[in-house]
Design a protein around this nucleic acid. Structure first.
Length: 208
DNA sequence: CTACCGATTGACT
DNA sequence: GTCAATCGGTAGA
């Protein structure tokens, strides 16, 4: 692996929906005291700014969501229901956008992640935004962390040659903007949270 | 200060 | 499938 495999800032400096789609298949990496852990990103969601009522940044800047207003390529870590969730900040046009990493497929340092998660079913190891953060020991210390420098916490280029089949759906846990299909996931992958088979991007509109 | 609630999870029917 | 624990962030008195 060379350092050029780390996703550069410019990767994130694009339309947030496109970034969310392109992050599927990429490799999330965490450097722990005992070694490297991580895996393949299999589920993401895009959150936009002032025009997206489901976004944390919809009602303006607060101490909590400040990282979303910062430069692209940084992390935005927030807490909900006493748990942590990881976003990658995207775009660079003054609009506070982020991509929620909802699930990864565990591939590297599985034993390390199992230790951090405790006694759970293997399938639940990293299935869900707060579960993967627990498995990788990601907390508020990584809020605004640069993801493009290849240390502690970063995202690398995909290992596989071909892109997996990507399905889309409305975002999970949000009641607003159901017409925006901004959730992306590897179709049928067992580590995807929520519906794992919805419809391919080539199909027609989703069932209501 | 108090009150409300969520981009969730895990236990349970 | 249903439901409640849990606690920091936020708004409002």
């Amino acid at each position: 692996m060379s350092s050029s495999d780390i996703l550069p800032t410019d990767f994130y400096r694009r339309d947030v929906v496109q970034v969310a789609r392109d992050l599927i298949g990429k490799q999330l990496r965490r450097e722990l005291p005992a070694g490297i852990a991580g895996g393949r990103i299999v589920e993401t969601e895009a959150y936009r700014g002032a025009d997206d009522p489901a976004s944390h940044s919809y009602r303006g800047k607060t101490p909590r969501n400040e990282a979303m207003f910062g430069p692209p390529g940084r992390a935005y870590v927030y807490t909900i229901h006493a748990r942590f969730c990881l976003n990658a900040v995207a775009q660079d046009d003054g609009s506070p956008c982020g991509v929620l990493i909802r699930a990864i497929e565990p591939q590297v340092g599985v034993d390390l992640m199992e230790q951090l998660r405790g006694d759970v079913k293997h399938n639940d190891l990293t299935r869900g935004p707060a579960r993967l953060c627990e498995a990788l020991d990601i907390d508020r210390q990584f809020d605004a962390w640069p993801l493009d420098e290849g240390r502690e916490l970063w995202i690398e280029e995909a290992v596989e040659q071909s892109k997996p089949t990507i399905a889309v759906s409305p975002r999970i846990g949000v009641s607003q903007a159901q017409d925006r299909l901004w959730r992306f996931f590897v179709n049928g992958n067992r580590y995807v949270s929520g519906p794992r088979k919805y419809h391919s991007e080539d199909d027609g509109p989703p069932p209501r």
